[in-house]
């Protein structure tokens, strides 16, 4: 039997999302159609989504498989890491080092980027952002946070 894995995976994801919301909605008061509680509307939507997912799965069962294509694992890792690192460090390290980290991590996401490019990008982007955001727009964030203090020359 022909099976289109892509369609099945798509339907399965919808069903999984629906299930997650439905389970969480169980803890909320449902109310009735006339006096809806906080759980009513999400539960109704989750059921609709699950039904859609199911139809997509069923339709995928009789179809020829379609290629999904390669996944850039290195890019995936680095690109998803960059915002996390920024979020975790922006208050502690301060805006400038945090931006430098993001720029470096992001550049390295490309399989074609070498250390030289990463260094150049980091320097250039950080300088640009500091000028535009800190001095130009006056964003109220410290350029260097408390974690950076030990590494800086004392005044």
């Amino acid at each position: 039997m022909k099976v289109d894995t892509r369609e099945i995976a798509c339907g399965a994801i919808f069903i999984a999302i629906a299930a997650a919301f439905a389970i969480a909605a169980l803890d909320l008061p449902m109310g009735s159609a006339l006096r809806m509680g906080p759980g009513y509307f999400p539960m109704a939507l989750a059921l609709i989504l699950a039904a859609l997912g199911l139809i997509i799965v069923i339709k995928g069962l009789g179809r020829a498989p379609s290629p999904i294509g390669g996944v850039p694992w290195r890019g995936l890792l680095f690109i998803l890491l960059a915002p996390l690192v920024f979020g975790l460090t922006v208050r502690g390290l301060g805006l400038a080092p945090s931006m430098a980290l993001v720029a470096a991590i992001a550049t390295l996401a490309s399989a074609r980027a070498g250390m030289k490019l990463a260094a150049a990008m980091t320097l250039g982007l950080t300088l640009f952002c500091v000028l535009v955001f800190s001095y130009g727009l006056g964003l109220p964030y410290a350029l260097f946070g408390p974690w950076s203090a030990p590494f800086l020359p004392g005044v």
């Binding site: 410290a142 350029l143 260097f144 203090a149 020359p153």
Partner: peptide, 17 residues
């Protein structure tokens, strides 16, 4: 180099209590 770095950073902010 160190003097330069100090000067550059000192203009931007002040560290310490």
């Amino acid at each position: 180099v160190r003097t330069f770095v100090v000067a550059a950073f000192a203009t931007a902010f002040v560290i310490g209590p």
